[in-house]
């Protein structure tokens, strides 16, 4: 179920720092629409995403994120006409303002940043970390979550077994035209014939029939799977009950131990979060879009906030690279 094949230093930490990090970074990126803050956050997220999944992350960013961000940038000035700098008038007669465009662009950047952080989140925060977080607070719910996580691959296997059993019995879509290979063979057979047009239609009809029978077969398999799954689940539940489920407080096992570097990471992220929140609250760093765009970073406090933010956003990437470098240097000595 979890496709997290990625092993990196930050993902290898305890879930505590992980949740604190993503919680802080995502909420802060959403709350504070400041160009510099967002640019740092987006750079950190993209760098880490590329570090984690390489070319896949680049493709994701270019093909999906950038278009959505551009769309968001253009959508806002179409609806929002505030701002002092009028670029031109829309066909509706409303002004198209530079401030609104900038605001839309930053909104798009914010969206892109959040999605990018979630991309990293999906890569390293696996379901067992979620169970660690909620196993003790909501035992029944996380038990259901556990069961589902186990069921999903189990059901996929069972569906395969049902299908092959049906195949062996001679029922199901397989016997008409199963898979693409057989369809292609039947098509090739049609093309060889002289009466091309007629046979092409025949071939199409055959494909359609194959698809319909495949869908029908899928639903039959799904039905069989449902019956089996329900019986199986009742068995599981009875066995749980006979082993004393519900008689006492439920404990939760997790594989994570809080070691020294997890505590360091926790303290680091928490300190940076406090610095950032305090600076923004004091107004040492501010931004305003309407009617005129202004942006200010006041004194040491503002600068310190930006530094702390940079440190947090770069933390997973730098930490990962640092650990990789250590690993390489150790390896070369062996």
């Amino acid at each position: 179920m979890n496709t997290a094949s990625v092993r990196d230093a930050f993902g290898g930490l305890h879930p505590g720092p992980g949740y604190l990090f993503f919680g802080f970074v995502i909420v802060f990126s959403v709350v504070f629409l400041h160009p510099v803050v967002l640019a740092i956050s987006f750079a950190g997220a993209t760098g880490y995403a590329i570090y984690l999944t390489g070319a896949k992350a680049v493709r994701f960013t270019l093909a999906l994120l950038v278009p959505v961000m551009l769309l968001a940038a253009l959508l806002n000035p179409a609806f929002n006409h505030r701002g002092a700098t009028i670029l031109f008038y829309l066909w509706t007669g409303n002004p198209f303002t530079a401030e609104s465009l900038l605001y839309g662009a930053l909104g798009g950047l914010m969206l892109g940043t959040v999605v990018q952080w979630f991309y990293c989140y999906n890569a390293i925060m696996t379901a067992d970390k979620f169970i660690w977080l909620f196993g003790r607070i909501t035992p029944a719910l996380s038990l259901v979550v556990c069961m589902v996580l186990r069921h999903v691959p189990h059901y996929k296997n069972q569906a395969m077994r049902i299908m092959s059993a049906r195949q062996a019995m001679g029922i199901g879509a397989q016997n008409e035209a199963f898979g693409k290979r057989k369809i292609r063979i039947s098509l090739q057979g049609c093309n060889v014939d002289k009466d091309g047009a007629n046979n092409e239609a025949f071939g199409k009809r055959k494909i359609l029939r194959a698809i319909i029978s495949k869908v029908k077969d899928s639903f039959a398999v799904f039905g069989i799977l449902t019956t089996w799954a329900l019986e199986n689940a009742i068995d599981t539940a009875d066995s749980m009950t006979s082993r004393g489920y519900g008689t006492g407080k439920r404990t939760s096992y997790s594989d994570f131990r809080l070691v020294r570097r997890d505590i360091y990471a926790l303290v680091f992220i928490a300190t940076a979060a406090v610095i950032c929140a305090a600076t923004v609250a004091s107004g040492a760093i501010n931004v305003s879009y309407f009617p005129l765009f202004t942006m200010g970073v006041k004194g040491w406090a503002g600068l310190m906030m930006l530094l702390a933010w940079l440190a947090v956003c770069a933390f997973p990437l730098v930490f990962g690279l640092w650990e990789d470098a250590i690993w390489r240097s150790l390896k070369s000595k062996i």
Binding site: T138, P139, A140, L141, L143, V144, M147, V148, H151, V152, H154, Y155, K156, A159, F222, L225, T226, A229, L230, N232, A233, I234, T236, A237, D238, M240, T241, Y245, G246
Partner: peptide, 22 residues
Amino acid sequence: EGRRPKARELAVIAVLTALAVV
């Protein structure tokens, strides 16, 4: 949670959820 659901109830909910996900 407060209802303290029985194991069987949890199991059926888990089955349906898993079927939806699959």
